[in-house]
Computed example of a mutant assay.
Amino acid sequence: MTTFEQNQYNRQVVRWLTLCATVVFGMILLGGVTRLTHSGLSMVDWRPLVGVIPPIGEQEWLATFDKYKQFPEYQKINKGMSLDGFKVIFMYEYLHRVLGRFIGVLFAIPFFYFALRKRLRPGLTPHLFVLLTMGGLQGLLGWYMVKSGLVDNPRVSQYRLAAHLGVAVVIYTYMVWLVLELRPAAHTALSGLTRYARWSPLLVGLVYLMILSGALVAGTRAGLVYPTWPLMGDSFVPPGLYAMNPAWLAAFEDVVTIQFNHRMFAYLLFLVLNLFAFQVYRHAPDRRVRTAAVILAVVLWMQVVLGISALLQQVPVWLGAAHQGGAVLLLTAMLYVSHCVMRAKP
């Protein structure tokens, strides 16, 4: 295979992976909307190989609704819900699951085609196989999360929610990084960027942990306990922090502590990322890296505004989904800057 042919194939793979990453991003947004509309427990069974076709006709809808009535969410929260109301929440969860299946097909068929036609760059196949495996396991993890809400307490476990979102974000991040690696190299002078190359993976990790922190907030609905800013109620440090026994458990199960930790993490990340973006901008030797630093700063400020707005308005669906999407965009921007400085050449 000539270098020209390999470059052509690389561009094809880049377009395919970019499409997959974009759809996964949409899946993360739809997952947020499903959670915010309290639709995730409307489908009480899991049929991974069938079930693509939704209920058709009044009798099928009534039978599906009767299944839902046997579970605690209907009995304790949605008692008396109409069939039309059930159809709304059902369709959010249905679309979420169907989109998951679509992503599997969108990834698997081109992957096997490229592999069989030997169009994949050497060393890329194992990475793509890992992504395929993670996608399959993500479906299992999603059902494992839903099952936690089909019991006495009709809410999914915040731990399983964080794990489900966390794996989705890892899949997305993996795809984005492969796209950045496969794109034609734009050589950047190494001078002045070495120190930032060392720090950038840590900052990527911090943004990811911030997303997981947000999942804990969402899973426990901790964002509703103090819908005020910059104070939490009447004080910056609210009463009752880490009041559980053992104290460390409060960071995962006490709504006041969870919201406080999320705020503190956000303040820390805001300061650190602004400083990082400013320093990279100052020392970057070319326009591409400076542009990446500006994008990072802009997305960071946008995400802060979205977070504060969602808090003050008690997390309406559109703002909650926008804040979740903004977190993934922030991670994307950080990945791009990180790739720029880590792949700089002398």
Rank of each mutant, 00 (worst) to 15 (best):
L271N: 09
A333W: 02
G123V: 09
L300C: 05
G135R: 10
V13F: 07
Y336F: 13
P238F: 08
L128Y: 02
C340V: 04
W16N: 02
T220N: 14
T3A: 14
A322L: 12
T64Y: 06
V304I: 13
L330P: 01
T228N: 06
V337D: 04
R343V: 07
M27P: 09
Y336A: 13
G139P: 06
E93Q: 13
L62S: 10
G32W: 11
Y174A: 11
P110G: 07
G51Y: 05
F107R: 11
R343P: 01
D84W: 09
R121K: 15
F90I: 07
V179T: 09
R288Y: 07
M264S: 03
E5Q: 14
I56W: 10
Q59M: 12
L329K: 00
Y74D: 07
L335C: 12
Y172N: 09
F65T: 06
K87R: 15
G166T: 06
I171M: 15
D286V: 10
L178S: 04
V170Y: 08
L99P: 01
M91H: 08
L269I: 13
G326M: 11
L329H: 01
H283Y: 15
G40K: 06
L190D: 02
D234E: 13
H164A: 04
G139W: 00
R35T: 02
H96W: 08
F129A: 15
V272S: 05
V14H: 09
M232W: 06
M232I: 03
A222H: 00
R183Q: 15
K69W: 05
